[in-house]
Design a protein around this nucleic acid. Sequence first.
DNA 1: AAAACGGGGGC
DNA 2: GCCCCAGTTTT
Length: 219
Amino acid sequence: MGQKTANKPELRDILSVLPRLLSNLPSPVKEFERVQTRDPFKVLVATILSARTKDEVTSAAVKRLFSEIKGPKDLEKLSTEEIERLIYPVGFYRNKARFLAALPKALKAFDYKVPDNLQDLLKIPGVGRKTANLVLSRAFGKSAICVDTHVHRIMNMWGFVKTSTPEETEMALEKILPKGWWSRINPVLVAFGQTICKPVVPQCGLCPLRTWCPRGKSL
DNA sequence: AAAACGGGGGC
DNA sequence: GCCCCAGTTTT
Protein backbone atom coordinates (compact mmCIF):
# COMPACT_ATOMS: atom_id res chain seq x y z
CA MET A 1 0.00 0.00 0.00
CA GLY A 2 2.77 2.45 0.71
CA GLN A 3 4.59 1.22 -2.34
CA LYS A 4 4.90 2.73 -5.75
CA THR A 5 2.81 0.86 -8.22
CA ALA A 6 3.94 0.71 -11.81
CA ASN A 7 1.24 1.26 -14.35
CA LYS A 8 -0.31 -1.96 -15.47
CA PRO A 9 0.78 -2.74 -19.03
CA GLU A 10 -1.57 -3.84 -21.76
CA LEU A 11 -2.07 -7.55 -22.16
CA ARG A 12 -0.52 -7.61 -25.61
CA ASP A 13 2.59 -5.87 -24.31
CA ILE A 14 3.03 -8.44 -21.59
CA LEU A 15 2.59 -11.37 -23.92
CA SER A 16 5.06 -9.98 -26.40
CA VAL A 17 7.77 -10.05 -23.75
CA LEU A 18 7.45 -13.76 -23.12
CA PRO A 19 8.60 -15.46 -26.33
CA ARG A 20 12.06 -13.93 -26.15
CA LEU A 21 12.38 -14.83 -22.50
CA LEU A 22 11.31 -18.40 -23.17
CA SER A 23 13.58 -18.84 -26.17
CA ASN A 24 16.54 -18.66 -23.83
CA LEU A 25 15.26 -21.45 -21.63
CA PRO A 26 14.94 -25.18 -22.21
CA SER A 27 11.21 -25.66 -22.56
CA PRO A 28 9.50 -28.96 -21.87
CA VAL A 29 6.81 -27.89 -24.30
CA LYS A 30 9.08 -28.30 -27.27
CA GLU A 31 9.33 -32.03 -26.74
CA PHE A 32 5.57 -32.40 -26.69
CA GLU A 33 5.13 -30.37 -29.85
CA ARG A 34 7.90 -32.23 -31.60
CA VAL A 35 5.97 -35.50 -31.72
CA GLN A 36 2.97 -33.79 -33.21
CA THR A 37 2.11 -33.53 -36.83
CA ARG A 38 -0.73 -31.66 -38.41
CA ASP A 39 -2.55 -34.97 -38.71
CA PRO A 40 -5.74 -34.18 -36.82
CA PHE A 41 -6.18 -37.72 -35.56
CA LYS A 42 -2.70 -37.86 -34.12
CA VAL A 43 -3.03 -34.42 -32.61
CA LEU A 44 -6.31 -35.41 -31.02
CA VAL A 45 -4.91 -38.62 -29.53
CA ALA A 46 -1.77 -36.90 -28.26
CA THR A 47 -3.81 -34.15 -26.67
CA ILE A 48 -6.10 -36.59 -24.92
CA LEU A 49 -3.09 -38.47 -23.58
CA SER A 50 -1.33 -35.31 -22.41
CA ALA A 51 -3.68 -34.40 -19.57
CA ARG A 52 -1.97 -34.54 -16.19
CA THR A 53 1.04 -36.15 -17.78
CA LYS A 54 4.63 -35.09 -18.36
CA ASP A 55 5.50 -34.34 -21.95
CA GLU A 56 8.18 -36.99 -22.25
CA VAL A 57 5.76 -39.65 -21.04
CA THR A 58 3.12 -38.44 -23.48
CA SER A 59 5.58 -38.46 -26.36
CA ALA A 60 6.67 -42.01 -25.62
CA ALA A 61 3.08 -43.21 -25.37
CA VAL A 62 2.17 -41.57 -28.68
CA LYS A 63 5.12 -43.22 -30.38
CA ARG A 64 4.24 -46.65 -29.02
CA LEU A 65 0.61 -46.33 -29.99
CA PHE A 66 1.29 -45.06 -33.48
CA SER A 67 3.81 -47.77 -34.15
CA GLU A 68 0.78 -50.06 -34.01
CA ILE A 69 -1.82 -47.93 -35.74
CA LYS A 70 -2.13 -45.41 -38.53
CA GLY A 71 -5.63 -44.11 -38.07
CA PRO A 72 -9.03 -44.60 -36.42
CA LYS A 73 -9.79 -47.85 -38.20
CA ASP A 74 -6.61 -49.47 -36.91
CA LEU A 75 -7.43 -48.28 -33.43
CA GLU A 76 -10.75 -50.05 -33.67
CA LYS A 77 -8.94 -53.38 -33.89
CA LEU A 78 -7.19 -52.93 -30.55
CA SER A 79 -8.81 -54.00 -27.32
CA THR A 80 -9.05 -51.62 -24.42
CA GLU A 81 -6.48 -53.73 -22.60
CA GLU A 82 -4.03 -53.50 -25.48
CA ILE A 83 -4.46 -49.75 -25.59
CA GLU A 84 -3.88 -49.57 -21.84
CA ARG A 85 -0.65 -51.45 -22.19
CA LEU A 86 0.55 -49.22 -25.04
CA ILE A 87 -0.14 -45.89 -23.38
CA TYR A 88 0.96 -46.79 -19.86
CA PRO A 89 2.05 -44.94 -17.75
CA VAL A 90 0.30 -41.73 -18.77
CA GLY A 91 -1.92 -40.27 -16.09
CA PHE A 92 -5.38 -41.81 -15.77
CA TYR A 93 -4.37 -44.36 -18.36
CA ARG A 94 -7.42 -46.54 -17.85
CA ASN A 95 -9.84 -43.68 -18.44
CA LYS A 96 -7.91 -42.59 -21.47
CA ALA A 97 -7.73 -46.13 -22.88
CA ARG A 98 -11.50 -46.27 -22.63
CA PHE A 99 -11.81 -42.93 -24.43
CA LEU A 100 -9.46 -44.06 -27.18
CA ALA A 101 -11.25 -47.38 -27.57
CA ALA A 102 -14.50 -45.49 -28.06
CA LEU A 103 -12.93 -42.98 -30.42
CA PRO A 104 -13.38 -44.88 -33.71
CA LYS A 105 -17.07 -45.32 -33.00
CA ALA A 106 -17.42 -41.65 -32.21
CA LEU A 107 -15.55 -40.65 -35.37
CA LYS A 108 -17.70 -42.90 -37.50
CA ALA A 109 -20.41 -40.25 -37.31
CA PHE A 110 -17.95 -37.92 -39.04
CA ASP A 111 -16.84 -40.36 -41.72
CA TYR A 112 -13.84 -41.36 -39.61
CA LYS A 113 -12.43 -37.86 -39.78
CA VAL A 114 -11.73 -35.54 -36.90
CA PRO A 115 -14.27 -32.71 -37.00
CA ASP A 116 -12.90 -29.24 -37.63
CA ASN A 117 -15.45 -27.40 -35.54
CA LEU A 118 -15.93 -27.01 -31.81
CA GLN A 119 -19.48 -28.25 -31.60
CA ASP A 120 -18.74 -31.62 -33.15
CA LEU A 121 -15.43 -32.09 -31.34
CA LEU A 122 -17.20 -31.68 -28.01
CA LYS A 123 -19.44 -34.63 -28.84
CA ILE A 124 -16.46 -36.98 -28.69
CA PRO A 125 -16.05 -38.74 -25.34
CA GLY A 126 -12.98 -37.52 -23.52
CA VAL A 127 -12.83 -34.28 -25.46
CA GLY A 128 -13.56 -31.08 -23.57
CA ARG A 129 -12.89 -27.47 -24.41
CA LYS A 130 -9.19 -27.58 -23.76
CA THR A 131 -8.63 -30.54 -26.05
CA ALA A 132 -11.03 -29.33 -28.72
CA ASN A 133 -9.54 -25.88 -28.98
CA LEU A 134 -6.02 -27.22 -29.11
CA VAL A 135 -6.96 -29.50 -32.00
CA LEU A 136 -8.66 -26.62 -33.81
CA SER A 137 -5.62 -24.40 -33.58
CA ARG A 138 -2.87 -26.95 -33.96
CA ALA A 139 -4.33 -29.36 -36.50
CA PHE A 140 -6.62 -27.06 -38.45
CA GLY A 141 -4.84 -23.74 -38.11
CA LYS A 142 -7.87 -21.98 -36.72
CA SER A 143 -7.86 -19.15 -34.23
CA ALA A 144 -8.92 -20.86 -31.03
CA ILE A 145 -8.24 -19.95 -27.43
CA CYS A 146 -7.16 -23.06 -25.56
CA VAL A 147 -7.53 -22.46 -21.85
CA ASP A 148 -5.79 -24.97 -19.62
CA THR A 149 -4.87 -24.64 -15.97
CA HIS A 150 -1.83 -22.48 -16.74
CA VAL A 151 -3.74 -20.00 -18.88
CA HIS A 152 -6.58 -19.88 -16.37
CA ARG A 153 -4.29 -19.45 -13.39
CA ILE A 154 -1.98 -16.83 -14.85
CA MET A 155 -4.65 -14.66 -16.45
CA ASN A 156 -6.52 -14.53 -13.16
CA MET A 157 -3.36 -13.85 -11.19
CA TRP A 158 -2.52 -10.95 -13.47
CA GLY A 159 -6.07 -9.68 -13.12
CA PHE A 160 -6.97 -9.53 -16.80
CA VAL A 161 -9.89 -11.80 -16.08
CA LYS A 162 -11.78 -12.66 -12.91
CA THR A 163 -13.22 -16.07 -13.54
CA SER A 164 -13.79 -19.32 -11.74
CA THR A 165 -13.83 -21.78 -14.62
CA PRO A 166 -11.68 -22.27 -17.72
CA GLU A 167 -14.72 -21.78 -19.93
CA GLU A 168 -15.39 -18.38 -18.41
CA THR A 169 -11.76 -17.50 -18.98
CA GLU A 170 -12.07 -18.49 -22.61
CA MET A 171 -15.11 -16.28 -23.10
CA ALA A 172 -13.48 -13.36 -21.33
CA LEU A 173 -10.31 -13.68 -23.38
CA GLU A 174 -12.26 -13.63 -26.61
CA LYS A 175 -13.15 -10.05 -25.80
CA ILE A 176 -9.78 -8.73 -24.65
CA LEU A 177 -7.23 -10.82 -26.51
CA PRO A 178 -6.05 -9.63 -29.94
CA LYS A 179 -6.95 -12.27 -32.47
CA GLY A 180 -3.35 -12.80 -33.49
CA TRP A 181 -2.77 -14.16 -30.02
CA TRP A 182 -5.65 -16.60 -29.83
CA SER A 183 -3.66 -19.62 -30.88
CA ARG A 184 -0.37 -18.47 -29.45
CA ILE A 185 -1.38 -17.73 -25.90
CA ASN A 186 -1.59 -21.37 -24.85
CA PRO A 187 1.90 -22.53 -25.89
CA VAL A 188 3.42 -19.34 -24.54
CA LEU A 189 1.71 -19.40 -21.16
CA VAL A 190 2.20 -23.13 -20.73
CA ALA A 191 5.93 -22.76 -21.27
CA PHE A 192 5.98 -19.73 -19.00
CA GLY A 193 3.93 -21.51 -16.36
CA GLN A 194 6.07 -24.62 -16.43
CA THR A 195 9.45 -22.93 -16.32
CA ILE A 196 9.07 -19.60 -14.50
CA CYS A 197 5.62 -18.75 -13.18
CA LYS A 198 5.17 -22.13 -11.56
CA PRO A 199 2.30 -22.66 -9.11
CA VAL A 200 4.83 -23.46 -6.40
CA VAL A 201 8.39 -22.21 -6.17
CA PRO A 202 8.05 -19.61 -8.92
CA GLN A 203 11.27 -18.27 -10.44
CA CYS A 204 10.40 -14.63 -9.99
CA GLY A 205 14.08 -13.74 -10.05
CA LEU A 206 14.18 -14.73 -13.71
CA CYS A 207 10.94 -13.00 -14.62
CA PRO A 208 11.06 -9.59 -16.32
CA LEU A 209 7.45 -8.98 -15.31
CA ARG A 210 8.03 -9.02 -11.56
CA THR A 211 8.12 -5.22 -11.26
CA TRP A 212 4.39 -4.98 -11.78
CA CYS A 213 3.20 -8.57 -11.29
CA PRO A 214 1.23 -8.91 -8.03
CA ARG A 215 2.99 -12.15 -7.34
CA GLY A 216 6.44 -10.66 -7.82
CA LYS A 217 5.63 -8.01 -5.25
CA SER A 218 4.47 -10.47 -2.66
CA LEU A 219 7.65 -12.47 -2.88
C1' DA B 1 4.30 -37.79 3.67
C1' DA B 2 2.12 -34.39 0.56
C1' DA B 3 1.13 -32.03 -3.27
C1' DA B 4 1.54 -31.14 -7.98
C1' DC B 5 0.79 -32.37 -12.68
C1' DG B 6 -1.03 -28.73 -19.89
C1' DG B 7 -8.74 -32.51 -18.10
C1' DG B 8 -12.98 -34.58 -18.36
C1' DG B 9 -17.02 -37.09 -16.84
C1' DG B 10 -20.45 -38.53 -13.54
C1' DC B 11 -23.11 -37.33 -9.83
C1' DG C 1 -19.74 -27.58 -7.44
C1' DC C 2 -17.31 -31.93 -5.84
C1' DC C 3 -15.03 -36.03 -6.47
C1' DC C 4 -12.81 -39.53 -9.05
C1' DC C 5 -9.17 -41.27 -12.03
C1' DA C 6 -3.05 -42.91 -11.48
C1' DG C 7 1.92 -42.96 -11.78
C1' DT C 8 5.83 -40.01 -11.25
C1' DT C 9 8.37 -36.12 -9.64
C1' DT C 10 9.07 -32.28 -6.54
C1' DT C 11 8.90 -30.14 -2.03
